[in-house]
């Protein structure tokens, strides 16, 4: 339908708000990252790249993601398989699996950090049953990062499961019947039929999950403060500290932009690994990738 001003008027409030609160801050980041003393320069990047801290943070960030993303996707997929059939009571279990998603990151961190306490923490109580001595967990530089992985996976898997389950349900049931008639075993059916048919959903979950884990730093801010000995100091936390502890916005902007660049690069790799090599499909996948905003 045609109407000269109505559509623009309807779009105006949303457009303005997004420009002010989303686009403008991004522009500021870029400006702060690339401009030194009023001149276009790569000085901020040179400064950041020369730091040892930056490389250490990058290492921690990548280590964290290389473990967390595949782990969460595999667990979520197995959980989705577990409750996506029509077995009696599956609905109740599904609901239970969603619950941690409704728990805030603050609460998750608080509860898990109490459970992971060295003295009097419940996990050390459990370990004592098997004769394992008390572990340091968040206070141990070898364990702290993996404790955060556990915490995030506990909170996150139910959420990613929602998408994977929707993907499984979207597969036509005749596909399963055909596989059954052909005598395919269950693992075989899942591996050669279900997974390939769900490529798109997997792509979406991969991209969205990577993005949310790359930018995660609430657990570090709340429990470990990047420690012990920088073992959980991810790039995003370093950027946060730059801005709010060292009042160095330029460094913060440089780090955030590097992080975003890495994110875009990883997403592209995932597109090529998982996506159909078709421009239109890539565009659609990009749209799907965009939906990650839910988590923020």
């Amino acid at each position: 339908m045609k109407n000269k001003c109505a559509p623009y008027l309807l779009l105006l409030p949303a457009f303005l708000l997004i420009c002010i609160f989303k686009i403008y801050p991004v522009a500021t980041t870029l400006q702060q990252a690339f401009i030194v003393d009023g001149h276009l320069s790569l000085g901020n990047y040179q400064r950041v790249f020369a730091e040892k801290t930056f490389w250490k943070c990058l290492e921690v960030t990548l280590k964290f993601n290389i473990v967390t993303v595949p782990l969460q996707i595999v667990i979520s997929f197995l959980m989705a398989l577990l409750v996506s059939n029509n077995i009696k009571g599956a609905g109740i279990f599904r609901t239970i699996y969603y619950i941690p998603f409704a728990v805030s990151i603050t609460v998750a961190v608080m509860v898990w950090s109490l459970m992971f306490q060295y003295n009097g923490g419940i996990i050390n109580s459990f370990l004592s049953i098997f004769g394992i001595p008390a572990q340091g967990f968040f206070n141990d530089k070898k364990q702290a990062l993996w404790c955060i992985v556990v915490l995030c996976s506990w909170k996150g898997c139910g959420y990613w499961m929602m998408f994977l389950m929707a993907g499984i349900k979207n597969i036509d049931s005749s596909v399963y019947e055909a596989a059954k008639i052909d005598g395919a075993s269950y693992p075989r059916t899942v591996w050669s039929i279900v997974i390939p048919l769900m490529k798109r959903v997997f792509l979406f979950v991969c991209v969205a999950n990577t993005s949310s884990n790359m930018l995660l730093f609430a657990p570090m801010q709340l429990v470990t403060e990047g420690g012990p000995r920088n073992s959980t100091n991810v790039l995003m936390y370093e950027a946060y500290k730059s801005a709010f502890r060292y009042a160095d916005m330029a460094r913060c902007a440089a780090i955030v932009s590097v992080l975003l660049l890495i994110l875009v690069a990883i997403s592209l790799v995932q597109f090529f690994a998982l996506g159909d090599h078709d421009a239109r499909d890539a565009k659609k996948a990009a749209k799907k990738a965009a939906r990650r905003g839910v988590i923020a």
Binding site: I23, Y24, M236, L260
Partner: peptide, 28 residues
């Protein structure tokens, strides 16, 4: 409901806007 000039461009604008992770713009 409406057809208007720049519809696709504007829609792309909104889609791109939500591809920018919220955490990344927190500091600015």
């Amino acid at each position: 409901t409406f057809d208007f000039k720049g519809k696709n461009a504007l829609f792309a604008f909104f889609v791109v806007s939500f591809m920018i992770p919220g955490e990344a713009v927190t500091m600015p």
